[in-house]
Write a protein that binds this DNA or RNA. Sequence first.
DNA 1: TCCTAACCGAGACGGTACGTCACGTCTTTTT
DNA 2: AAAAAGACGTGACGTACCGTCTCGGTTAGGA
Lengths: 206, 206, 206, 206
Amino acid sequence: MNIVRGRPRSEASTQAVLAAAERLFGTNGYSRTSIEAIAKAAGVGKQTVYRWWPTKSHLAAAIYEQLAPSSKIAPNTGALQSDIAAMLRSLFTAYTSGPAAALLSGLIVEAQGSDESVMDFRAVFFDERRIITTDLFDRARNRGEIPLSADIDLLSDMLIGAIWMRLLAGHAPLDGAFAEGLAANLVAAASAEPTQTPRTPDLEAS
Amino acid sequence: MNIVRGRPRSEASTQAVLAAAERLFGTNGYSRTSIEAIAKAAGVGKQTVYRWWPTKSHLAAAIYEQLAPSSKIAPNTGALQSDIAAMLRSLFTAYTSGPAAALLSGLIVEAQGSDESVMDFRAVFFDERRIITTDLFDRARNRGEIPLSADIDLLSDMLIGAIWMRLLAGHAPLDGAFAEGLAANLVAAASAEPTQTPRTPDLEAS
Amino acid sequence: MNIVRGRPRSEASTQAVLAAAERLFGTNGYSRTSIEAIAKAAGVGKQTVYRWWPTKSHLAAAIYEQLAPSSKIAPNTGALQSDIAAMLRSLFTAYTSGPAAALLSGLIVEAQGSDESVMDFRAVFFDERRIITTDLFDRARNRGEIPLSADIDLLSDMLIGAIWMRLLAGHAPLDGAFAEGLAANLVAAASAEPTQTPRTPDLEAS
Amino acid sequence: MNIVRGRPRSEASTQAVLAAAERLFGTNGYSRTSIEAIAKAAGVGKQTVYRWWPTKSHLAAAIYEQLAPSSKIAPNTGALQSDIAAMLRSLFTAYTSGPAAALLSGLIVEAQGSDESVMDFRAVFFDERRIITTDLFDRARNRGEIPLSADIDLLSDMLIGAIWMRLLAGHAPLDGAFAEGLAANLVAAASAEPTQTPRTPDLEAS
DNA sequence: TCCTAACCGAGACGGTACGTCACGTCTTTTT
DNA sequence: AAAAAGACGTGACGTACCGTCTCGGTTAGGA
């Protein structure tokens, strides 16, 4: 029957830790926030943090889940371009409000460590996002909007990559214009027939 | 006359540090390599490391400069698609041989810290790359290959972002097929007339 | 109710540190012993040393307390001269066995730093010793052995100072003959009536 | 013929170093002053300091020589008590003006190091002082002022030790009253016949 | 109503690395 | 040959956090 004995997990502590972590990540950045500081700010024992979130990135992932749960549903407007644009707008809202950007930056850092954490991280962010974008492109292909030969993996990389560029490098904003332009360009790319039959000449051969 | 006084910087130490850092970054990863360990491995005082490379990311940048100097020249084949493909192929060669991937991953991590380091990092990588891609697209626009209305900033984000996606997430290789496909897709995106006149309907309105 | 929270201080670590410090001070001397080395020799984290003994001189003081606790009781033989001699003999036994000499030498060094540490040091050594000697002379005065006019502060300085001279400069041993002679001389000095009524002529006036 | 070739020692540098050292020792204390800081303050290369003063204590000794050269001559007033008092007064003048106290404190620290430095130090301070006091007592003995049995070594220890007590512990000033009282007490001690024929009873036997 | 298990806060523990300071030596050009 | 300048390898400093561990003190079933 899997009965649980002993004192149950404290909901108050859980929330205090998440709130403190979110605040500190947002204020000082992910890498400059220590678990020690989070525990202290939450008024909680260090052990309690380690018991429920084995690493700092688990904490970050938990906060990401709290912050951007709605962005997991792929929009369905009937047209690829507006699907992409809608997805981007809802995503940008989640990313530009609150400390989400700092968290995501921190996550990718951790993901470079060991192989396991790369897997962890992909599951949390990249793959989740890839599933949505793949779904969008798939539906468009099924509708005949884009040719069967379209490389959906590649298109997804371009889409998600462009978002990351702005997110990480910060040279330009995540705004509506960016959403519209990106959507339009991706539709154009996806729609093109694969006409590159003659192999592009090598740089050396030019 | 700008005369230099005092004992000159030791070239041997400089090279020993760079070699040790390159090896350790490649072996253990960027974040699991300490400056202490680099100094010890190089047979050099810690102060000597700190004197010339104030932070670990400066060291990484220096190694990047050493590893990928050739990738700074924009290819010129006369056609946008082959220009991009050529650039990608030479870039991939630099990235997939040696510990460059680990270094670049580490760099982006550090770049999330304070505002100053973001600037540092952009100067080293993003902006440098952006200059090259912008140059490619500019020439194509001047040749009339792509319309004047093409958003070059956006195209650059898609191009560089796609590379980063593969580099960081590692779900697919940086190979010739990727280079060809990406080049073709970007040409298609760039060539498209801006037809998104009717504003895409909102997600809520669907 | 003064309840104690958190993990209690480790008695094993405490003893290990004191033992290591005593050994190293004795072997290498006070100033050539680093806290780093003490921690390592004790198999203890550096922080643990710093937590309980903020400075090296605190450590030295703690060892002094351990080594010479018996010397704190003023002897009472009924005669000033034998009181002093007895005190000196018990003191010399404590000082000449073990690394006490090196420790005391070290302490006086540290005491020269800031004003606060001078206070610290006086409390630990000088004042403690002064209390005992003052007690000896006081009792002798009350017994009528020495005149009321005897300058007890001055006599104490001569007594303790003579000990220090031998301890620090090391030109002659701390032995029984020294104890006897010092005791006799101090009794003679203390017993003398203050006959120096005519002010001693100045050097310049001679 | 012993001709010296090459650039002669710079008198300006010598003086600059001594002046800077004296100032810094006085300001920050002996142990908190680094040779690095002295060289910088003197506007002199570090090597120049090391060339002429191999250790910090050599520097201190050099300054001591500069500050208290006159105190080396034993006064001769014809009476032991006034001799001692005169010596003390001139000594106190040297010690209480300028940074001499800090320097002397520092010296004794260094003297605890290796055996060689103890020798160094004794030569510079203790022995020099001992020679003077021994001279004083000797003359008094020759004049018949004090008995032939007087232990001059012991008397010297009491005299120099009492000075050190005040100098180091700082519980009371080095003033005229101290000089007079000390002189009187020492004369009394020295004059006493060795009456301690019956061995002082042991503490245990009391 | 106890018992027992798991939680909680606090904070000490052995470690690793940090970035800085000073050491005493060295290598350069200038005097 | 001595000087100013300053880089060099070395070693220690005192601090910050790591993740683990032990305390006393809750807070729930199950006996």
